[in-house]
């Protein structure tokens, strides 16, 4: 899944945007979402557990959640006036039974117009 195209903000997980110069730092921005799985998916997952393999429902759920988290992070960055978020990291923590928090965080920066 492409995560860098969201709301016109360039996103990378390295310390720079290759080929561009960072002109200003805005500090850490983050986006997170807490998701619960629903019962239907749980039952399907329980069945799938017997034969093993991919649990597509959960894959989808976590993908959507991660996309949301990145989107929120990008929105926070654009509110600060940044046009890129660099060095993005993901973290996940389980909050309660059957729910998880997906967190994306990075450094909001402004890039100069020195693209090749």
């Amino acid at each position: 899944m492409l995560l860098g195209d969201i709301s016109g903000i360039t996103i990378t997980n390295v310390e720079a945007v290759p080929g561009r110069k960072v002109t200003e730092h805005y500090g850490v921005v983050q986006g997170s979402t807490v998701r619960a799985k629903h019962v239907g998916r749980d039952i399907m997952a329980g069945l799938k557990n017997l034969v093993g393999g991919e649990l597509k429902g959960y894959t989808q759920l976590l993908q959507d959640a991660r996309k949301d988290a990145v989107e929120r992070m990008a929105r926070q960055a654009s509110e600060l006036g940044a046009n890129a978020v660099i060095n993005v990291r993901f973290a996940t923590s389980s909050v309660t039974q059957g729910a998880a928090e997906i967190l994306a965080y990075g450094t909001a920066v402004k890039l100069g117009d020195d693209a090749h």
Partner: peptide, 24 residues
């Protein structure tokens, strides 16, 4: 960092994920 000094046209964050379970 990039292993060579070639000009870069675009860079973007990408991800792929999978949830799997073990059989009985």
């Amino acid at each position: 960092t990039l292993p060579d000094q070639r000009p870069v046209a675009a860079s973007v964050l990408v991800a792929g994920s999978v949830v799997i379970s073990i059989d009985f």
